[in-house]
Structure formats: structure tokens, C-alpha cells
Design a protein around this nucleic acid. Structure first.
Lengths: 208, 208
DNA sequence: TGACAAACGGAACCTTCGTTCCGTATAGTG
DNA sequence: CACTATACGGAACGAAGGTTCCGTTTGTCA
């Protein structure tokens, strides 16, 4: 329920055409069906679903899937990358707000909501430190940059403590989402737990 | 590096004897070696290590391992259960402290330190909501009860906000550990991030 | 010490899952 | 309409890991 649009501008990236010839009509259609199906399935089941499930959902054979995306990981990346960029855009959009503190916390809640409803993004960010960061470098960097800006402004205004960086913020939020899921985990509890973490992000804290 | 002691008092639980006859000496020894090896391996590599690795580490064949623990999951439970109970004991111990607030936050940091150094506990608590809670019910309940007491006292003194329950606290802490791991994740950063969460747990918070 | 039940080791088995291969179907073109 | 490059489906393959089976070893007891 999203439609995994990808930058198919002139095909430098994700196999939109092979060589120089335009893709056959059915191929284009199938590619899109696969992206849509994968987005749904990854989001609801997580990254560990069998690739067959994705193919079945898309109504194509595994062979077809593999012709479009040479590897399960490639498919995963194709989908997550767009989501990361969407989030980065949202962060940029909030950077001009008049109230930096509010903009920051609003973005945090947005990211939390996104990550919770879509286990794939969740998993992706979760594994960010491992070897995923390097593959989706573009998206991760863009997001990191956007958050850094938001965070910097919020800190400058004194709305947020000054001893955390963007990476830690992302990690904490994803952690809170994890937390919400391991409990009953509806949208409301996510918001509550993220709210607790936000409380911790506001200004100082005795070092305990 | 811990030694997985288990309540082998009179053998009602974890297969210390089969039927009514006492276990053979070598069997007792091997059982313990398996528990120790599994504790080490699970802690350092996580729950997903091949069972062969555990057997190899213990210096026994897989057959032997399976005779003592009918399933990988059973072995996992045997180990985690003792750790949960240890934590629950620690919680109980802190319940009599004169400063409830400090006792609560000290316990939280203890739990975080434990969970981080031992990926198994981490994984276990992480999956607590899924179908693990039912299996290690004893341990989870004991821990939950201990934390509830600590939390209740801390709340009563006004050191902690009154709108979170024990389950949420555990979830948040595990989430913070996850967070610390996905970054560089040394012991120090764990403490920092858990500190942020603790900050959020202190007293009220504007609802955002 | 001899016999037997208990325990051992590890090869073999089965299932799951990612990936490849190839015979078949079809969009696009003259 | 026929021809060919492109794309398709799904069976087959191989690696990985959990579990079982069985011939061999060993502790225990008379």
C-alpha cells in the first residue's frame, strides 16, 4: 500500500533497460508488480520472508523476479532506499520551521510511525551498523544529514540536549519501536514509548 | 564466562535424571559442559549460531547434546531462564533500599549491562512478546514482578513518571541496548543511551 | 572381572531458502 | 502473418542448519 516508485528517469540505476533497447511492456509491468508486492510483504512480514512469497504475491515466477533483481538483497535495497529518501525529504522539509524544537520532535514521531508500520524499514535501520549502511549509503547519508540539521537547530534553541548525535537519535527511536513491538505494540503504545525517549532527549540529565 | 548453574536440587525440571535412576557420572559432566559452552556461545554470537558450534565448543557430539536437550530451543531456555531469575533476584534485592529512585535506576543500568554483554538474554527479552514469554514464564514473571516492585516504589517517591509499567520499562531498556549495538556499541555508549531513556522515565513529560 | 544398560559420536536425513537453468510463451517488428 | 529477441515460469540445484539413528564406547554393579 504505497507503490514503490523508483527513480526511473533515464535508467542508470535499477535495471530499467538492458543495454540500450527499451524494456518490453510486460516486463515493465512485472517489474512494478514485483516492487509493489515486495513493499507489502517486506513491510508486513519483515525481511526474512522467503523470496518465493514475494514472487507469489506479485503473481510471477521466481525466475522473473531474479531477472529484474539479481539478488534478494538488491530487491530489498531498491525498496528501502526510496523510503529512506522519503524520510530524508521530510527531514529537509522540517528544517525551515519556525520552531526547531517542535520540528525535531515531530519528525521523530513521523519516523517512528513509519518504521513501526513497515518492518522492512525497521529491520534496515536496525541493521544500519552492520553492512547495510554501505549499500544504501545514499539514503542513509541523506537521512543522517537531514536529521543532523533538525537536531542542530533544536539543540541551538535549547530544546534538546547537546550530547547526542543524529545516529544515536535514529538508534534510540528504532529501539523504542522495537520496544513497542515486543509489547502489544499498537500505534498508540509506539507513540507513548517514543514520547518517553523524547522526554529523555529534552535538555540535560543528571549523569546517574 | 559465567557457568550456567541450574536448580538441580532434586530434579523436577531440566532432565537431571531419566525415570528414577541417578545419572551416570560422565553424563552429568557433559550436561554441565554443554550448558557452559552454550552460555558462552549464545552470549557472544547470539541465538542463531549453529547447534554444531555449541557441541564443538563443549567437546561433545551433537547426538549427546540432543540427548540432554531435545531441542535447540530447550537448551536456549535452560540457559536464559537462570539469567532471568538472577536478574529477578537482583531486583528483589534492591527493593529494600532506602532510596527507591536510585535503586530503580541502578537496577535499570544493571539490566542494560547484562543484556548488552550477553546477546542471548538480549534476544530472549527482545522476543519476549512473541512466544517466548510463555515458555520461560517463570523467569519472565519473576523479573516482571521484581521490576514492578522497584518501579512502584520509585513512582511513589516521585522519582519516576507514573504512566509506564514494568513491561514497558524492560522493553525500553532493551530497545536502548539495541540502539547502542547498532551504533558502535561499546559499554560506554550503552550507558549513555540508557541514560537518555532514564531521563525520559524521570517524572512527567509534556505529551508532545 | 564380566555383563548390560546408559551414554557417546557423528554420519545421514530432511527441510528451508536463495539462486540458476532451460524449455516455452509472447511482444514487437517488417 | 511470421520471425526473433525478450521475457516468463517453475523445476532443479546447492548450501545451511536442525534433528534422528545406530554402531561403538564406557560407567556401574554384582
Amino acid at each position: 500500500m504505497d507503490g514503490g516508485r523508483i527513480s526511473t528517469d533515464d535508467g542508470v540505476d535499477a535495471t530499467p533497460e538492458t543495454g540500450g533497447r527499451p524494456m518490453r511492456a510486460d516486463a515493465v509491468k512485472n517489474r512494478q508488480r514485483i516492487l509493489d508486492a515486495a513493499a507489502e510483504v517486506f513491510a508486513s512480514e519483515g525481511v526474512s520472508v522467503p523470496i518465493d512469497a514475494v514472487a507469489a504475491r506479485a503473481g510471477v515466477g521466481v525466475g522473473t523476479l531474479y531477472r529484474h533483481f539479481p539478488t534478494k538483497e538488491a530487491l530489498f535495497e531498491a525498496i528501502v532506499l526510496t523510503k529512506l529518501i522519503d524520510l530524508a525529504d521530510a527531514a529537509r522539509a522540517g528544517a525551515g520551521a519556525s520552531d526547531p524544537g517542535q520540528a525535531f520532535f515531530a519528525f521523530v514521531q513521523l519516523m517512528a510511525a513509519e518504521a513501526t508500520m513497515k518492518r522492512d524499514l525497521f529491520d534496515a535501520l536496525d541493521a544500519a551498523g552492520i553492512d547495510f549502511k554501505s549499500r544504501c549509503a545514499d539514503g542513509v547519508e541523506a537521512l543522517q544529514a537531514g536529521i543532523t540539521t533538525l537536531l542542530g537547530r533544536a539543540v541551538a534553541v535549547g530544546a534538546v540536549r547537546d550530547d547526542v548525535d543524529a545516529g544515536e537519535v535514529v538508534a534510540l527511536i528504532i529501539g523504542a519501536c522495537h520496544a513497542a513491538e515486543s509489547i502489544g505494540g499498537n500505534a498508540e503504545s509506539v507513540q507513548r514509548l517514543v514520547g518517553v525517549v523524547c522526554g529523555g532527549l529534552r535538555r540535560s540529565a543528571e549523569a546517574l
